[in-house]
Nucleic acid binder design. Structure first.
Length: 555
RNA sequence: UGGGGGAUCGUCUAAUGGCAGGACGGGUGACUCUGACUCAUCUAGUCUAGGUUCGAAUCCUAGUCCCCCAGCCA
């Protein structure tokens, strides 16, 4: 693993410290147990970093276990994407890859054991009837008429359920606990249901499938998990988790600990709704760069290191919270700033003709690849009479704090020369179409021998000696901070994608490959999209640079 | 109106009876061949009301507000 361990402590690590100190455990075993019914998202990353991070720091083990007990929703495609994403994030389960479906036989035997103890029974109430018998939050439930069948009858019926003798929905296996329990989870929960559906791994071997509550605790126990870390909504289920293990599994038992799942402003983690975005074509797929999925973030240009750092720094607690998206971006920029080679890309080009620069001449100027990293070296950047600068770097009538190019003003072209705007050419509608300028040959490389200063440095590319590119600019997919309230479509940001087709980038980007990352100086971080070809480069804006000027501008 | 959880700067998170600290965000400066980065500095918090204590975010009592649970989903 290439992960560094500077993870701050948290209440879960405190529990583990205590368990180690007291001698309750000698080694720690955790697990990440996704259901393969969707793609992993940034919320899963928090759980992955937590579980694998603990295993790494305590020299323990973390298992990857697919919780694949519902054949109707689960697919092999998801299994593959999940494994790819966990690896991409920088974690490795080594030989510890498991499937709950591998335990189906054992689980079945545990169910039989429970029946033999008189603690489970086959119930023939319909789903609707079971719901009615369950009672409500304030009223106790009532016993199923099938609750007091003999052990022999239950054994026989359960066996026949397994043999496929009964129709879906006609029979279930239920734990016999307490229909009056204040915790509704304990009101004779369903343990097995009949589903005459092929399972993506076990095929048609089974037509009864265990429920989550029955499967999860036993899977944990079978794997000798010491700390079973899950999210807050399973707090009520902990009683059942412990109950089942107490009936059929020898000590020691894994301990379930719940933490608050990640909520990120302007994004949504609900797998159901993410699926909807994909299915409705609102996004281009699970890996749309606006998606909070790991594959989306990867395509957008996020780095595993930044995501890990983020997950470590947001902390772990039991309080529901909403992390500011800006914090994720902060962690991202911190990483990208250190690691991204710089280049120049002009998103919205404005032509500048340098009148005193010889026609047809091309010279190569040296640019630093990464001021944060001297080892990154330098590159040669072609310069010529006609160049492009950023449209927003010129103003006809600049306000006081605008330092960039304006009529009569001198600025620096990064790594190149000082130029002075001498004229502005407009079309019939008054739109600025071209800038005329002169350069000072004495300022080659970007500094003046006479020591005079300029207030601004602009990025640029040579008109001929640059490459056309498409640049995709992204904003939050949702326009509201918490899109999980209200209707999905009402919360969508109509401007979450802007495609710039006329961008120009440095010639040096000719051989850039998908996922290559760059800082376009003064703009932001960009990465090559998978749609990119040598003939037509396509970049995604990963995140813009912090921009104090835009704040000044607003005032 | 049952049960299970939770509440600390705008946000996230520490402090485990002993200086309420850090990070993000925001403000102001400095620096700058990226209005970036970096640096300095400021901003701002213990849900409420009582109590115990030399001392309470922490313990006690009573409230308030928020989240989760009535799938044959996980």
């Amino acid at each position: 693993m290439d992960t560094n361990s500077n993870t701050p402590s948290n209440f879960i690590r405190n529990i583990i410290d205590e368990d180690l100190a007291s001698g309750k455990h000698q080694a720690i075993v955790t697990r990440f147990p996704p259901e393969p019914n969707g793609y992993l998202h940034i919320g899963h990353a928090k759980s992955i970093c937590l579980n694998f991070g603990i295993a790494r720091d305590y020299k323990g083990t973390c298992h990857l276990r697919f919780d694949d007990t519902n054949p109707e929703k689960e697919e092999t495609e998801y299994i593959e994407s999940i494994m790819r994403d966990v690896h991409w994030l920088g974690f490795d389960w080594d030989q510890h890859l498991y499937y709950a479906s591998d335990y189906f036989e054992q689980l079945y035997n545990f169910a039989v054991e429970l029946i033999k103890q008189g603690k489970a029974y086959v119930c023939e109430l319909s789903a609707e009837e079971i719901r009615q018998y369950r009672g409500t939050l304030t009223e106790p439930g009532k016993d199923s008429p099938y609750r007091n069948r003999s052990v022999e009858e239950n054994l026989d019926l359960f066996e026949r359920m397994k043999q496929g003798e009964f129709e879906e929905g006609s029979h279930v296996l239920r734990a016999k606990i307490d229909m009056a329990a204040a915790n509704i989870v304990m009101r004779d929960p369903t343990l097995y249901r009949i589903r005459k559906v092929d399972h993506h791994r076990t095929g048609d071997a089974w037509c009864i499938y265990p429920m989550y509550d029955f499967t999860h605790c036993l899977s944990d126990a079978i794997e000798s998990i010491t700390h079973s870390i899950c999210t807050l909504e399973f707090e009520n289920n902990r009683a059942l988790y412990e109950w089942i293990l107490e009936q059929v599994f020898p000590e020691p038992h894994p301990r379930q600990i719940e933490f608050a799942r990640l909520n990120l402003s302007y994004t949504m983690m609900s797998k159901r709704k993410l699926l909807e975005l994909v299915n409705e074509g609102i996004v281009s797929g699970w890996d749309d760069p606006r998606m909070p999925t790991l594959s989306g973030l990867r395509r957008r240009g996020y780095t595993p290191a930044a995501i890990r750092d983020f997950c470590d720094r947001i902390g772990v607690s039991k309080a529901n919270s909403m992390v500011d998206y800006a914090f994720l971006e902060h962690c991202l920029r911190e990483d990208l700033n250190q690691t991204s080679p710089r280049t120049m890309g002009v998103l919205r080009p404005l032509k500048v003709v340098i009148e005193n620069y010889p026609e047809g001449q091309v010279e190569y100027l040296e640019g630093v690849n990464n001021p944060q990293d001297p080892d990154a070296g330098t590159r040669q950047i072609p310069f010529a009479r006609e160049i492009y600068i950023e449209e927003e770097d010129f103003m006809m009538d600049p306000p006081k704090k605008f330092f960039r190019l304006a009529p009569g003003r001198e600025v620096r072209l990064r790594f190149a020369y000082f130029i002075t705007c001498t004229d502005v050419i407009k079309d019939e509608e008054g739109n600025i179409v071209e800038i005329r300028a002169t350069y000072d040959p004495e300022t080659k490389g970007g500094s003046a021998p006479d020591g005079r200063k300029v207030k601004a440095t602009l990025h640029w590319v040579a008109a001929e000696h640059s490459l056309p590119a498409e640049v995709r600019i992204y904003d939050h997919l949702f326009k509201v901070e918490n899109p999980s309230v209200g209707e999905l479509e009402d919360n969508l940001n109509p401007n979450s994608l802007e495609i710039l087709t006329g961008a120009r980038v440095e010639l040096n980007l000719k051989n850039a490959k998908p996922e290559d990352k760059f800082q376009f100086e003064r703009q932001g971080y960009f990465c090559v999209d998978q749609d990119s070809t040598p003939e037509k480069l396509v970049f995604n804006q990963t995140v813009p640079l912090r921009d104090t000027w835009s704040k000044v501008k607003i005032k």
